[in-house]
Design a protein around this nucleic acid. Sequence first.
DNA 1: GTCTATAACCCGATAGAC
DNA 2: GTCTATCGGGTTATAGAC
Lengths: 199, 199
Amino acid sequence: MSTAVPSRREELLAIAARLFAEKGFRNTTVRDIADAAGILSGSLYHHFDSKESMVDEILSTFQNELFGQYDEILASSEDARAKLERAVRVSFEAIDKHPHEVAIFQNDADHLGSFSRFGYLADRNTQSRQVWVTLIEEGMRTGVLRPDLDVTLTYRFIRDTVWVAVRWYRPGRGLTHSDVADQYVRILLDGIAQPSRRR
Amino acid sequence: MSTAVPSRREELLAIAARLFAEKGFRNTTVRDIADAAGILSGSLYHHFDSKESMVDEILSTFQNELFGQYDEILASSEDARAKLERAVRVSFEAIDKHPHEVAIFQNDADHLGSFSRFGYLADRNTQSRQVWVTLIEEGMRTGVLRPDLDVTLTYRFIRDTVWVAVRWYRPGRGLTHSDVADQYVRILLDGIAQPSRRR
DNA sequence: GTCTATAACCCGATAGAC
DNA sequence: GTCTATCGGGTTATAGAC
């Protein structure tokens, strides 16, 4: 958790997160990170065991926060449509608040996940899938979603459309994350076609 | 263009494309490519100037083919809804026929684009944007799409949802590219909500 | 068309001085 | 907490033999 006055360790992690997000984990060298922090590469190892432990701390901290929010939504008593909307909104908020962490997860999770140390990434992926599939199935059962949806395909559609926005969304420029979520929820639920022309 | 009997050069490019797609361009070594081809890394330089020239040939060949298809759609006389559908279908067909090329473009175009040699990647990006925006605006003007759409946001939504499917779609396994396109077009145009509950 | 051998460089990480 | 100095290994690419 970040405090009002970030520790040196947190400063370094923030610098590393930005570089990992911009250039990719593998393509960012410890010298890049040290340069951006104004120190030499060897000095980084006073704070961290390895480059891997840096990205590990970045990702696990972020995911613990995000999945706490998903759990709250699943436990709420709203209808499926409202819960789906909230889950989309929480995700866009995460892109707004933690764009670097989301970008690293999107770009490097597959590669990192092949190391046993990052096995929790696959677990979180499964957990995320369960959240969305649960909401979609509840929506189909209760009649707020079309009953002919392919659940797996719909899950992938929602997951991808939400998280891939990290590629172009820039906090503080143009639309807010809330505006983007509004439009995305509208397209997702009602489509882009003129309803009167609905086939 | 690939011939019935691929040349050694084409064989090597196909091997490289698969590895670039699986591991990323930077994370694939010339030794990886040579190993997979059953030769030594030095021997690759009899066929190609550099690793960069390999990915260059892979991407430019693919894009020349894809954008030829987009041009045909734009020039056709169908209505905007039909043209949008066809553009989505052509894109999914590209994912089916050339999954490695699409994956490389999705994962590495940003990084490669920073070198002047790959300036055409940015040009193709602009061209692609013009295709989708043209179709969306024509659809809004002719009344087949909702008139309150944010054109830029809708463009990004379509672009991202289509191309990100390369992350999970595997040719020959499960749904065909045509099935996936059917479902995606339906969600995109009409949404996932039950129409009777439309707000 | 491929192999042998190697140049020139970049990488993550370490040991110990300050 | 940072710097100096460096180790061991991986990377792209080249020159010339076969």
